[in-house]
Amino acid sequence: MEFVHQTLPQRVRFAPGQAAAGVAAEVAELDGRRVMLIASDREAEDAARIAADVPVVVSHHEVAMHVPVPVAERAREVARQHRADVVLTIGGGSATGLGKAVALTSGLPVVAVPTTYAGSEATDVWGMTEDGTKTTGVDARVLPRSVVYDAGLTLSLPVDLTVASTLNALAHSVDALWAPRADPINAALALEGARGLVSALPAVADEPEAMPGREGLLYGAYLAAVAFTSAGSGLHHKICHVLGGRFDLPHAPTHAVVLPHVLALNAPFAPDAERRLADVFDADTAVAGLEALRRRVRAPGALRDLGLRESDIPDAAEAILPVVPASNPAPVGRDELERLLHDAWEGTDPR
């Protein structure tokens, strides 16, 4: 074995039913006295309850998918005007992403409280969108200093969004197996994360109020995100970032649709990773296992259902081609990208 692995510094607090106490403890750990609370309008009431015991000087609710640059700039100005010393984000990946945008230019510490399985809270990756282009980067300043996981906060997430968000998390595990900085430690985290997600998702789909299943999803999503942020962004995420930024497709459902097609493309060229993923799914092949799970939980199946037009495919392939990672197991050119995108658009069975 010869590799270099970097572990990112972050406090993680699993606190079932104790989000408010956990947030208060983490803000106190940072000596926070002027907290900027970021949460969408939909999350505002719960966010106020969770943040009741911390010194919030401003609550900011302008949260948008893919973090448009003007939205980020307005949030940064709010933080500056109120002299915030800690940013507290409560919500899904969009809320976390906006907190990261503030941290990127201010250096303010972020405390993240996820209410979905997006995994952004465990990464040092930021992303913002301008003029139809989503730009991403890596910066230590955006890694939340601490994360408070309370599975009870995910109970209000509808089953269809739970499924899509979980498959987004699973994509972190899959990408980590062949991303630019893939290594054995990342693989171990990715596969354990995938195992947690795969075992918990059917239980949650059947019984959305079942706390053990929700806790299993958060555990799996965290491990998957840690593996992903260490390994880097693979082909799957490059594709989804282009689709999201350029065509404003919904984040988690897009990941859920694209994942099986990227896996089907790469699996024949990465036999060891494929075999280990197949074991996670307890299936003959990883592609068959993923497809069986997707059908079991009624996952979204086609990009055309999410708003992508067939005529958009050549433009999408053109934008993706320059960012295809050199580490991708399968050779990828324009033809392969257009074929993959068309299959995903149509909802073709990846098997």
Rank of each mutant, 00 (worst) to 15 (best):
256 A>N: 07
311 S>T: 15
322 P>N: 12
292 A>R: 15
44 A>S: 13
78 V>W: 07
205 A>C: 13
105 T>K: 11
235 L>H: 04
261 H>D: 10
331 P>N: 06
33 R>S: 15
65 M>N: 08
272 D>Q: 15
115 T>H: 02
169 A>H: 02
99 G>I: 06
149 Y>F: 15
53 D>K: 07
343 D>M: 04
53 D>P: 00
176 A>G: 08
171 A>Y: 03
344 A>I: 10
76 R>C: 13
198 V>F: 08
343 D>C: 03
29 E>S: 13
142 V>C: 09
112 A>R: 05
68 P>M: 05
50 I>W: 11
77 E>G: 13
234 G>H: 08
30 L>I: 07
207 E>F: 11
228 F>H: 09
237 H>F: 11
244 G>W: 10
9 P>Q: 11
197 L>V: 05
112 A>Q: 07
27 V>P: 06
48 A>S: 12
215 E>A: 15
54 V>R: 12
311 S>Y: 04
156 S>K: 13
155 L>S: 10
313 I>G: 07
107 G>T: 11
75 A>T: 02
201 L>N: 04
154 T>Y: 03
350 P>M: 04
50 I>S: 02
85 D>S: 04
326 A>L: 13
300 P>F: 04
320 I>N: 10
346 E>K: 10
131 D>R: 14
282 D>P: 00
8 L>P: 03
228 F>I: 02
196 G>M: 03
11 R>I: 02
179 A>Y: 04
154 T>A: 13
29 E>Y: 12
22 G>W: 08
205 A>I: 01
61 H>K: 10
176 A>Y: 01
348 T>V: 15
220 G>K: 08
63 V>T: 12
41 D>R: 15
101 A>F: 03
327 S>E: 05
215 E>R: 14
75 A>W: 09
233 S>R: 11
129 T>W: 12
285 T>F: 03
308 L>K: 06
314 P>R: 04
250 P>H: 00
252 A>W: 10
49 R>I: 12
147 V>G: 06
20 A>Y: 03
110 V>A: 05
165 S>D: 09
196 G>E: 05
216 G>Y: 02
8 L>V: 05
11 R>A: 14
135 T>S: 13
278 A>P: 09
74 R>H: 13
92 G>K: 01
22 G>Q: 05
299 A>L: 05
236 H>V: 01
38 I>S: 05
273 A>R: 11
